[in-house]
Design a protein around this nucleic acid. Structure first.
Lengths: 202, 202
DNA sequence: CACCAACTATGTCAAGCGTCATAGTGTGGT
DNA sequence: ACCACACTATGACGCTTGACATAGTTGGTG
């Protein structure tokens, strides 16, 4: 059974990935998830900022857990394919409406409260959260590359390239309402990774 | 002399790149640019949507014109270096506050008016605009790669990879308030491009 | 000077927002 | 039966937003 709280978090993540952070109101979330409006301040006493934060970490795990699993079970190339395939599924299932909620937080800064230093620290808390998620994803990729014998610095660079290019591609695919860019990036990344791994195998 | 209209457009592009589309109000724009509030509806009779659209095309040219010039004058590798360097300058000059306003439009959908079909078509107009800008940038890269002898389909894929990865990297750098990711991606992209070009030179 | 068009100043409006307060409902333990 | 306790319903608040209306101000031309 999914609790009201969980439904709110998942719904917030979904709406944020479609429209952005500021275009997603708490009233939208309760409408979209058919949850009681009065429960918001009960489950999220720190308000919208807390809901956003929980939505980001929820969405982050939704990505990182299968990613890590695929990297372990199928190796770097297979893991990359699974990673890209899950994004493609997500894009196509929503008619290219939904993207990545973490990117949404990184790009669309939530505006709440006044200009006090509270604001600034809380702002950076959300931004740091998004940065930490990206770092997690890069780290998973990095570890998988190391496991297949790549040098550490090369693995770092390639992990960043993979995460950044896929994140950018998903946004571009939304804009063009087509998965073409994803196909192209996938093919190039596969070539790059297998070339890098082949070199170490020699 | 920059007119009021131009100042508004540039200011809107700047604010959008920092906070996102919906977090940028028209009142913010006039505050930020010290322009008269009453002139908004005069210069932009179609309202906020028009201002956003003009800000996007303004920012797009600000990128594509130097990009095309650098690609023509310095070749693909030099052009890539100039492209990355301009983004790095932009990030560092703003303390990693400002990113790409085109990505902002692609991720953070502007919410105006009711749910009528007007809304939907106008929404897609902005999204198409962003998609067209990305297509432009990819096309510039594509042409430069062709000019150096690459096969058409490979050039298409590499152009997409370059634009997507840099766009994603800029967002990630904002989140981590560091240009490290940009360094890493730049180095990898340079290696990939020179390898691809060297192969055709054989 | 008069005139007209382009532009600006200022106020108002309805709608939506996040947040809070208060009252109501259910449910498990004793 | 009773009572805490977690949860929900509903309304109100202060505020900001985009849009609009109306009056005032320029500046160039005849």
């Amino acid at each position: 059974m999914t609790t009201t709280r969980d439904k709110m978090i998942a719904g917030a993540a979904d709406l944020m990935s479609r429209r952005g952070v500021n275009a997603t109101s708490m009233r939208d979330v309760v409408r979209h998830t058919a949850t009681p409006r009065g429960s918001i301040s009960h489950h999220f006493p720190d308000g919208k900022r807390q809901l956003i934060a929980e939505a980001v970490t929820f969405a982050a795990r939704q990505v990182s857990i299968p990613l890590e699993k695929a990297m372990n079970e199928r190796g770097v190339i297979g893991g990359l394919r699974a990673f890209v395939a899950s994004w493609r599924r997500h894009l196509e299932a929503t008619g290219f409406e939904a993207g990545c909620p973490v990117l949404a937080v990184a790009v669309d800064r939530y505006i709440g409260e006044a200009s006090d230093k509270d604001d600034e620290t809380a702002q950076q808390h959300l931004l740091d959260l998004a940065g930490g998620v990206f770092a997690d994803w890069r780290q998973i990729m990095h570890a998988a590359l190391l496991r297949e014998g790549l040098a550490a610095d090369r693995a770092t660079r390639l992990a960043t390239l993979v995460v950044a290019s896929i994140e950018g591609t998903v946004a571009m695919c939304r804009a063009s309402r087509s998965a073409d860019a994803l196909d192209q990036v996938q093919e190039e990344l596969e070539m790059i990774l297998s070339a890098a791994l082949a070199r170490t195998a020699k």
